[in-house]
Amino acid sequence: MNTEFALEVSHLTKNYRDFSLNDVSFSLPTGCIMGFIGENGAGKTTTIRSILGMIQKKEGTINILGASQNECLPKINEHLGIVLNECTFPETLTTSDVSTIMKHIYKTWNNTSFSNYMDRFALPKKKKIKDFSTGMKTKLSIAAALSHDSRLLILDEATSGLDPIAREEILDVFLEFIQDENHSVFMSSHIVSDLEKICDYITFLHKGKILFSESKDVLLDSYGIYKCSKEEFDKLDASCVKAIRENKFGIEALVSYNQVKRQMSASSSSCMDRASIEEIMLMLVKGKQCTA
């Protein structure tokens, strides 16, 4: 099943009473990791639910691992590894129970693999899930998602409840997963620093709309945070400014790094730094948008 894109979402639209997803489109090339970011309430979970067929979409097409969602979804599910932001196993089960159950659900279930993850994550085999900590529950879900022939991992805020050390462990696991170039990862998170580390692509959802879906390197190369006075700001070419925030002592602007670097004079007190993904997100959400 060698397809160019592991996940393709086109013109996804879904309306609720007080919220809508509007014409959401993005594509995840096979072999890459895509980070899905957005503030709380932006619609990330709604998008993921639409992708997984949990809710009906009003419009749009979704292709998963090359197959249309409307068609053979159960068959494709054999190759999907899903981790949601809650532990989705009934609490009275133990990890051995989980293994017994999953063996009969997935044709490609690999018990050895699951066992290895249990050991690696230090998860006890006989304890009931209700006695697990949040971190342990997440690790269990991740282990289950990786213990059958998953080609696409979809994670919805899976690392949000973990401490930094556990998160690093998990990110390592994802990087290992990606070593096979037929494997891809789609993860939503609001811990942007995690995504910045390992993602190849970043898609930003804001109030139900996609603001950008771009290679991370391009984003980090293109944007800069320019801090200057009002007068210096006015001298700038309007086309290179994307958003601004004013404070009592000057202006902070999200700009095109290369364009502004050229226009900067050596003598001014203004300064320009490369923008991190988090800063880009903050500026686009909280700053005043500038459309040239």
Binding site: L52, G53, M54, T88, P90, T92, Y106
Partner: peptide
């Protein structure tokens, strides 16, 4: 139990239909 644990959602992502 299915509802409370979210298994009903989760099983939609499984090859069972």
């Amino acid at each position: 139990f299915d509802e409370r644990s979210g298994w009903d959602k989760y099983s939609l992502t499984m090859p069972v239909g």
